[in-house]
């Protein structure tokens, strides 16, 4: 047991805490992107369904979940603030308007389903339905744009690679949404979604190829990292997982397909983290080692996270088990 006085001077159990927190930060981000990703995907797919009952089913599918899913973004912000305060400050103030664009999109996405259910007249639902689609489409796009700008150290809002990554994230969230909805629906709706999933998957793969091509050709600082073992392995894993997703969707193995999407999301975020490390704020010139908070708060946060994050996973298991399985027609929670 580490004694209390040494908490201020030595890292807990001699662990490489700076690197672990870098990893944890991206793990939290990936969890957010996977979980809220299917909410975004459902929001985009909402635009492609005209039938009132089907639309209700889409909303019911994410009803109990989206709020908890979004909190992973809050935890991401909190973890970055606590572990890398200088990065939090630099990054968010540098990408000022982009950050507020993300927040604006999240406001629309969060508010719209709640408002949609409040009244049942046609005009009201048409407008809040649109707001839901716009929020769900722009939130992942801006998140992808932000992440690419962060990785490349860009200082302008709109960058070409950023737009490509943004579109890739949108495509991935649609794949995610399809996998989730095929777990939660039945019948024609479930069957019809298969094609949406394939299309989005192909789009995602193409956009990722373009992104990696850009990194190889136009970002010499990242080129060597592209061929490092972890990144190369994750790129390969993306191809394999895409194959698994396609096969499982074809064979109606819903849980396998859903798991494959989780893998795709974690692989993408892993690629970003692998390309970034050991730098954490390229434009601000900060590495993981220089940006990490001092030892005492770092140790305390590590203890806190080690206790609380496993508990949070228990909450999610309880929540998802309580609402497992497809929604029955006409059922709304």
């Amino acid at each position: 047991m580490t004694d209390l006085a040494s908490l201020a001077t030595d890292p807990l159990f001699g662990l490489p805490l700076a690197d672990l927190w870098f990893g944890l930060l991206f793990f939290i981000f990936a969890t957010f992107l996977f979980l809220d990703g299917f909410d975004f995907g459902v929001g985009v797919l909402f635009a492609t369904r005209e039938d009132t009952d089907e639309r209700e089913q889409l909303l019911s599918a994410i009803g109990p979940f989206w709020d908890g899913n979004e909190v992973w973004l809050v935890v991401f912000g909190g973890a970055m603030f606590a572990a890398f305060p200088a990065v939090y400050a630099n990054l968010f103030s540098r990408h000022y308007l982009l950050l507020f664009a993300i927040l604006g999109a999240l406001i629309l996405r969060g508010l719209a389903p709640e408002m949609y259910e409040q009244r049942h007249d046609e005009a009201w639902q048409r407008w809040w339905g649109r707001a839901f689609v716009v929020g769900s489409l722009t939130a992942p796009f801006f998140l992808g744009l932000f992440t690419a700008n962060w990785l490349l150290g860009a200082t302008t809002i709109v960058t070409l690679p950023g737009v490509v990554v943004g579109l890739a994230v949108v495509a991935l969230t649609i794949v995610d949404g399809v996998a989730f909805l095929r777990l939660k629906t039945r019948g024609d709706l479930r069957e019809g979604l298969r094609t949406d999933g394939y299309r989005a998957l192909v789009a995602y793969l193409l956009l990722i190829v373009v992104t990696l091509g850009y990194v190889y050709g136009a970002a010499p600082a990242l080129r060597s990292a592209l061929f490092s073992a972890p990144v190369a392995a994750l790129v390969l894993a993306t191809l394999v997982l895409a194959g698994v997703y396609a096969a499982a969707t074809w064979a109606d193995r819903y849980y396998v397909a859903f798991g494959a999407v989780a893998g795709l999301v974690f692989a993408l975020v892993g690629i970003v983290a692998g390309l970034m490390y050991p730098i954490i704020d390229r434009a601000g010139g900060l590495t993981v080692e220089t940006a990490i908070v001092s030892t005492l708060p770092l140790n305390l946060m590590s203890i806190g996270a080690a206790i609380l994050l496993p508990l949070v996973f228990v909450y999610f298991v309880v929540l998802y088990s309580a609402f497992s399985g497809p929604i029955e027609a006409g059922e709304s929670y």
């Binding site: 935890v75 909190g78 603030f81 606590a82 572990a83 939090y88 806190g304 996270a305 609380l308």
Partner: peptide
Amino acid sequence: FGGPLALEGMM
């Protein structure tokens, strides 16, 4: 300041 905010999120 960051620690309490992170704990607020997680806890």
